[in-house]
């Protein structure tokens, strides 16, 4: 029993790492007022960029950098549509997911089944994710820039009144979120399962979106949520004979519906940024 708890915790942390990384990024984007549903696509692009670069140069750290860049560029593209052009954020995110998955599947074809000589260790990235969670919590809660970011999501007019460009803040948050999603992708293709395969993200991006909500947009609660979701996934294989795997795998999504409903009833943790999902129009009264 003790062994079950311990091994489950370790595996939960491993599986939880990509969703924690991407989830932290999404928390930042959403805290600035922008929902980016393109996490899955950015993660796939990150995974491919990481693998392609690491495979051809033999330098996994360079692959990591490439993944961060790929995620950031994809997010910037999204920001052009969703922030500058004020397109519907949700639909723009869906478009980014389709595009990211499609592009990665297409351009990744030559890398399918290719071996990777130098990989990254799961443990070091797991530690990095935990440190990042702590650091991001600090930034968000205790620094000036954290305050600005949160204000952009709660009440963008005040940020504007402070003389700070709301668009710039949101761009920065969204691009940062993309970089984190890219990092999550790199974890998958360089450490978790060192390889490239179409569909390598297998819905993890959506779990990251769920995680942001489930953790009520709080970086430290995100750690707990990632562990919880990771444990569910691991147990779906571990307890295959005892529990229906599909039930365990569906739980993160069901929990999000539940959490959203409870917080709407005022009985659960709330904390959705006020201006979440609303494009900002300068000088316009709402």
């Amino acid at each position: 029993m003790e062994d079950l708890v311990w091994t489950t915790l370790i595996r939960a942390l491993a599986f939880g790492t990509p969703i924690l990384l991407a989830g932290l990024g999404e928390i930042f984007a959403e805290r600035s007022g922008v929902v980016n549903l393109g996490v899955e696509g950015m993660m796939a692009l990150g995974a491919l960029a990481a693998f392609a670069v690491a495979q051809s140069t033999g330098l996994p750290l360079l692959g990591l950098a490439a993944a961060v860049l790929a995620g950031a560029v994809a997010a910037a593209l999204f920001a052009v549509a969703a922030v500058s052009l004020r397109a519907n954020q949700y639909v723009a995110g869906l478009a980014l997911t389709m595009l990211g998955l499609g592009l990665a599947g297409l351009l990744g074809k030559p890398f399918e089944g290719a071996p990777l000589a130098h990989t990254l260790s799961e443990t070091s990235l797991m530690a990095l994710a935990l440190l990042l969670a702590l650091a991001l919590w600090f930034v968000l809660r205790h620094t000036y820039w954290g305050l600005v970011l949160r204000s952009a999501g709660e009440n963008p007019e005040t940020v504007d009144a402070m003389g700070i460009n709301v668009f710039s803040v949101r761009y920065a948050a969204v691009v940062f979120g993309g970089a984190m999603a890219g990092l999550a992708g790199a974890f998958l293709s360089l450490a978790y399962r060192p390889s490239w395969a179409d569909g390598i993200t297998s819905g993890l991006g959506w779990i990251a979106v769920a995680l942001a909500i489930f953790a009520s947009w709080h970086p430290l609660r995100a750690v707990v949520a990632a562990l919880f979701f990771g444990a569910l996934y691991h147990l779906s294989y571990r307890l295959q004979a005892q529990v229906t795997p599909e039930l365990l795998k569906a739980m993160p999504y069901l929990f999000v519906v539940l959490v959203l409903s409870l917080s709407a009833l005022g009985r659960g943790p709330s904390g959705a940024p006020e201006a979440l999902g609303t494009p900002y129009e300068r000088g316009e009264r709402r």
């Binding site: 062994d3 390889s195 691991h234 294989y237």
Partner: peptide, 16 residues
């Protein structure tokens, strides 16, 4: 073909 699932299944077997 599902490397991620194969990975987690192997980890589960190792844990057992």
């Amino acid at each position: 073909y599902n490397p991620a699932a194969a990975k987690e299944a192997t980890e589960a077997l190792i844990a057992d």
